[in-house]
Computed example of a mutant assay.
Amino acid sequence: MRREPTEAEVKLWRILRGRRLAALKFRRQTPIPPYIADFVCFEHRLVIEADGSQHAESHYDQERDAFLAAQGFVVLRFWNHDILQRPRTIEDTILARCGLPF
């Protein structure tokens, strides 16, 4: 993703990077072995994934999410289309999950 991110990943990273969203610290492409999370906030144990249509009903993603949940993470998945068309809704969802005002 770092070398050739999708348009949605670029837009989401612009929202999350540099503590721009309510001073939350996010990292991108972060290993949580054996997986790599698109974006992670360790303080809130939150993983955010930007998904294209290839992720629809993915058994791999279900197994991955179950593993991350067992590690104490909550996984929020957003469709690329939603990231591009409704970024404010995405921000509000993240803030709500972290228990922060929006």
Rank of each mutant, 00 (worst) to 15 (best):
R17S: 11
D65H: 12
G72C: 06
D82E: 15
F73V: 02
I83K: 01
R14H: 09
Q71K: 14
Y60P: 05
E7P: 01
T30M: 09
S58Y: 05
Q62S: 07
I36A: 03
A66M: 14
L100N: 01
D61K: 02
R14P: 02
P33V: 14
L100W: 14
V47A: 00
L12P: 01
R86F: 05
A37L: 02
T93M: 13
Q71S: 09
D38Q: 04
R28M: 06
V74D: 15
E91T: 11
M1V: 14
G52L: 08
R86H: 15
Y35K: 05
A69V: 09
L95D: 04
P33N: 14
R2Q: 11
H81R: 15
H81A: 14
H81C: 08
E63I: 11
I94P: 03
H59I: 14
R45H: 12
A96Q: 13
K25I: 00
C98R: 02
S58D: 07
A37G: 05
H55K: 09
N80T: 09
E57D: 13
Q54S: 11
V47Y: 00
K25W: 00
P34R: 07
V74R: 15
P31S: 07
T6I: 01
V40M: 00
R97H: 12
L21V: 02
Q29D: 06
E4D: 12
P87Y: 04
G99Y: 09
L95Q: 08
Q85K: 14
G72Y: 01
F78E: 07
T89H: 14
D92N: 10
E91P: 06
A66V: 13
E43W: 13
D82L: 10
G52P: 04
T89F: 14
V74E: 15
S53F: 09
M1Y: 12
Q62G: 08
C98M: 07
A66D: 12
R17C: 05
T30F: 07
Q85E: 14
I83C: 03
R27P: 09
R77C: 04
I90G: 03
F78N: 08
I83G: 01
E7H: 01
E4L: 12
A50V: 10
L68P: 04
F73T: 06
R88I: 11
H81P: 01
A22M: 02
P33F: 02
R3Q: 15
E7W: 00
A8I: 00
Q54F: 10
R19S: 09
L21Q: 03
L24M: 05
E91G: 12
A56S: 08
D61F: 06
T89M: 13
K25T: 00
T6C: 03
E43Y: 15
R77T: 13
K25D: 06
Y35M: 10
V75H: 02
G72V: 00
Q71M: 13
S53L: 11
F26A: 03
F39I: 02
H55R: 06
S58Q: 08
W13V: 05
H55Q: 06
P5M: 07
D38A: 10
S58R: 06
H55M: 09
A23P: 04
P87C: 05
Q85H: 12
E9D: 02
L12Q: 01
R19A: 08
D65P: 03
R45G: 03
I48L: 14
A23M: 06
D92E: 15
